[in-house]
Amino acid sequence: MDSDDELASRLRGGDERALRAAYDRHGAAVFYLAQRLLGNRADAEDVTQLTFVAAWTGRDGYDPQRGTMLGWLLGIARRKAVDRMRSAARDDRVTETVRAHLVPPDGRETPERVVDRLVVADEMGRLPEEQRRTLELAFFDDLTHHQIAAVTGLPLGTVKSHIRRGMANLRRRWEVDGAPSGSRSVGPTRAL
């Protein structure tokens, strides 16, 4: 699997296959975000298409030093989804602002939250297998360190270090690539 760096340089060189590789890797996440934001499949398909076309035309603007390709693509997708909501609002002569669309009144998730989930999920997928599995047991099954050690047969110390490192990796990625949020301060992080 090519790194983001390799993919980015192929993309900048005008290699259409690099766009296809990015689409194969991240198309599902972009599509998921668009569906969550727009709530209908046809618009989500359009926004997915617009996102990758914009990624192609704006490929010189992607800098792997500043974030992952997924983070970049999700940023484009959010903007395209917002554009789509604006034009829908215009079409419908709806007086609500786009902001009202973006902050669901019934307490549903915000776009920021969906982006956060997607980047953290992507990072989960990049963790070493045992680290990922250990974290899943902690997240999804709500198991304690001791229970995880019992289930997996790993020594308690190993479970602890998997979870500590895994959490640190997810946190780092989230702080780099997560949706910008006013309330979140990216302060100095102690080494974990």
Partner: peptide
């Protein structure tokens, strides 16, 4: 925050491709 996001990831494995 990370743990909270982590707990929501179960549905995100194997997202369908467009």
């Amino acid at each position: 925050d990370v743990a909270g996001i982590g707990a929501e990831l179960q549905d995100l494995r194997d997202l369908p491709a467009p």
